[in-house]
Nucleic acid binder design. Structure first.
Length: 191
DNA sequence: TAGCTGATTGACT
DNA sequence: GTCAATCAGCTAA
C-alpha cells in the first residue's frame, strides 16, 4: 500500500502538510523499518533561495523530474537528507522529511543509531532519520511509490493538529512558513 | 589545484 | 553558548 503518484503531483507545501501522519517504509537492510512522518519542510523552485533547485545544479535532473521520487543529498560530509520530489514534471519542488515516530523495526533502528530503542531521538532530525532507516546516497532517485523505499497512507485517523512555522537549519530564505509538524508530538525535532 | 560552503549532529566549555 | 567532523560541487586562478 503506497501513495499514488498523483499525491506528489501537487505544490510542495500541500504535499508537505499531507505527508504528516503517513508511513515511511524502508526495506533496506535485514529488517524492514517503518516510521510515521511527524515533521516536514517544503522547498520550492528557483524562486526559493533555500531550494537546491536554485543553487545546486546536480540536483536538477531529479528536482525538475516527475513527483514521487526520492532526492537524497549529502550534507556536511557526514549526513544525508531524504526528500520526496513534489509537483508536476518541469515544476521543481520537494519535501524534506525531518522526523519520524518509529512504528516498526525499532530494534534495527536503535542498532543503526546507537541509542536505546525507546529513545525519542531514534529518527528525530534529517540526518538521524536517514541513518535509522538505512537510507544512503544509493537511494537517490528511487521511486517512492514502488521499491525498497516507499510512503504509505496513514494507518490511523489524522486526528492530530498540524502546526506550521519557519524552516530551521538553513541559511537562505529563512522566514518562509514552510515547515509543518504534528503539534505536541514528542518525536518532532524542534518546537 | 586550492579554497569555500552547507536543508547536521554530537561533544564539549 | 562554541566547535570539529568531512565531502560533493562550485568558484577562482
Amino acid at each position: 500500500m503506497t501513495l499514488p503518484r498523483a499525491f506528489f503531483r501537487r505544490p510542495a507545501p500541500v504535499v508537505a502538510r499531507d505527508l504528516l501522519g503517513c508511513l515511511l517504509v524502508s526495506r533496506r537492510g535485514r529488517t524492514p523499518t517503518v516510521g510515521r512522518i511527524v515533521e516536514t519542510e517544503a522547498y520550492l523552485g528557483p524562486e526559493d533561495a533555500a531550494s537546491h533547485a536554485a543553487f545546486r545544479p546536480g540536483s536538477h535532473a531529479l528536482l525538475y523530474g516527475d513527483g514521487g521520487f526520492a532526492y537524497v543529498f549529502p550534507a556536511y560530509g557526514m549526513h544525508v537528507c531524504l526528500n520526496a520530489v513534489a509537483r508536476e514534471r518541469g515544476e521543481p519542488g520537494c519535501v524534506l522529511l525531518r522526523a519520524l515516530e518509529p512504528v516498526a523495526g525499532l530494534v534495527a533502528m536503535a542498532r543503526r543509531r546507537g541509542v536505546p530503542a525507546d529513545s525519542p531521538q531514534l529518527a528525530r532530525g534529517p540526518g538521524n532519520l536517514t541513518r535509522a532507516l538505512a537510507v544512503t546516497l544509493r537511494d537517490n532517485g528511487c521511486d517512492l511509490t514502488a521499491g525498497a523505499l516507499t510512503i504509505g497512507p496513514p494507518d490511523a485517523p489524522r486526528d492530530f493538529r498540524i502546526a506550521r512555522g519557519v524552516r530551521v537549519g538553513i541559511t537562505r530564505a529563512t522566514g518562509l512558513p514552510l515547515r509543518f509538524w504534528i503539534a505536541g508530538n514528542r518525536y518532532v525535532s524542534k518546537l
